[in-house]
Design a protein around this nucleic acid. Sequence first.
DNA 1: AAGAAAAGGTGAAGCGCTATACCTTACAGC
DNA 2: GCTGTAAGGTATAGCGCTTCACCTTTTCTT
Lengths: 350, 350
Amino acid sequence: MATLKEIAQAAHVSMATVSNVINGNHHKVSSETVERVEKLAREMGYVPNQAARSLAQRESRFIAIISQAGKGDNILTNPYNAQYIGALTVDLHEKGYYPLIRFTNDFKDIDTDLRGWNVAGAIFNGSYSRYLKQIRSLPSIPIVFTDCYFRVPGINHVGVDDDMGGQLAGEYLGKMGHRKVAFLAADLDSSEVDQHRRAGFEAGLKEYDVELPDRWTFRHADIRPGTEYTEALYQELYSAMQTEDRPTAFFCTSDAIALQLHRLMGRMSLRVPEDVSIIGFDDLPFTQQYSLPLTTIHQDVDQKAHLVVDMLSRHIQDKTLPSERTVVGVSLVERGSVRNLGTKEETARE
Amino acid sequence: MATLKEIAQAAHVSMATVSNVINGNHHKVSSETVERVEKLAREMGYVPNQAARSLAQRESRFIAIISQAGKGDNILTNPYNAQYIGALTVDLHEKGYYPLIRFTNDFKDIDTDLRGWNVAGAIFNGSYSRYLKQIRSLPSIPIVFTDCYFRVPGINHVGVDDDMGGQLAGEYLGKMGHRKVAFLAADLDSSEVDQHRRAGFEAGLKEYDVELPDRWTFRHADIRPGTEYTEALYQELYSAMQTEDRPTAFFCTSDAIALQLHRLMGRMSLRVPEDVSIIGFDDLPFTQQYSLPLTTIHQDVDQKAHLVVDMLSRHIQDKTLPSERTVVGVSLVERGSVRNLGTKEETARE
DNA sequence: AAGAAAAGGTGAAGCGCTATACCTTACAGC
DNA sequence: GCTGTAAGGTATAGCGCTTCACCTTTTCTT
């Protein structure tokens, strides 16, 4: 509860000097004074008042983390978001920042947070392109966008090579002899990420002359069990799987969806990979605990968080830095959820 | 970027009046003035500066969420924490508060956060009892403790009926004819929650004259795959399961651990529930996606978060309120991971 | 030896808001 | 007509910190 003023009085120096000591501007202060002030501050249990500091500096140590969600939605139920936001939080703390977390789609909320708290920077996760004009009108703080595909210059972006991920999945299924494949996304219509994964998937399949038919593109999966969306998906899948002409493999845009699919297939008494193959996307630590050894596209979420925080903090420190774009690579992790149907070449070789 | 002062000038009223309008103290202002000021504020895009407000009021709209973790640990990897902290965040936003999230075990960090930001309240998750004296010395803000067992009066606490949960598990295994049972916790030595679940478990077993031997109490499970802790656990489990005299059932203190166990059993080619039965704890939405239909003890995490935020906000509004303790009930959810070994009575009935 | 520059320091204006004390007018009650 | 009080409003002193302009003394440079 001691204030900077009290420290100054006790140390017989000015507030300016104490401020310099506390903030590490030691070049302005003799080392004896530094020591004396630091000792006193420690003894008196001094903790700087962040509100006062933010007010005086017109900038806080907050970084806004904005993630898409409806009002009242708990997006941390999704393990990808949890892992990613947790990693961001850890990295931010290490750089002396605090995460200001807001799960919303409402631009008014975002605006109020960003301006009200004088945040030092912001991280936008998801497809916020429709708010582009409004985001541009914000006070000019550094922003890093992730999980989105803006088509404008001058923004910082950390992306994942979604096209390549899709392509790897497509090529792999092709190589394993699958010619009738399906695609399953959480929200294909509004997620640019999902769209790119699909495009890459089609490209990968094309190398093996496989087409992805529209009727086997499932656009709206819900990862929670027992919701109406999940039931609707089940019905859709059920009718697709009951015909003789049915897909032999599914590419899902996340592991969470892949596991959901696995469960729904189980309800139809279809086994993975014996009856149907599944390939996922993400390869989160938690997924690996599942009994199903899921073949999936690996992305390094922790590294992504690292890059985001690093990029952002550099742009906060030097506002003249030109905008940057980084893409995190992906790789295929072969486990056991895709069956090898054999092809002419493949079987010949073995 | 407009300030309150500018609104005041534009509306030809004092700053005090604008402040009253913005903060809803309408009883001091005529309704025409209210309308005029609100209109102007909207037009000028006014957003209150939270730092200035916190400074003037000596209290911010932040609620600190303190959760146990080592430095650098991403506790949101654990799905229970993710669900719980996500739910807290949503509930706090609905009441106009902001979560100030800190994952740490270091009291200095906690102290700095709480005092530096002038938080309105705090939520401590985990076994912080060793810091009791220091917590008591904090500026007197309302605090709610969860997932812990303090033995002192005067604190607010929202707990889960861990003893009952353990007991239900014990009784159930007893009823299903299991006489050789094991127990698996994440961190039995330092988690009071785990200790209570174990005590309840023993009590439940005792009703069926079953004992929980010490050699079958596994204290340190790691939910991540492939870590050295996990490998160590595997070795321990392996030697326990290779003898003729081996446990037929396990009670795990969380679903995440139960899934880990399931996986490790799979590595030993032991099937659940055919070769070994497993009962978990938590029943999170995400767990239900797992292919193993896990019998588990259900706790309502969302409701818990609700109770915590409600209790805390009441205590913030009225600091004279006496301390409260609430316990959230649990129930057994029977799925299919426990095998019925049959007992004299049971088999007789069927 | 003189001037420049570096080192070490001070004072006080403000950042944007809240809250307290106080002021004015209207009018109800007797 | 006088008082009491409610309604509607104002002026301003902080909250705790940073920062800028400025001041003094010491230490080079040439």
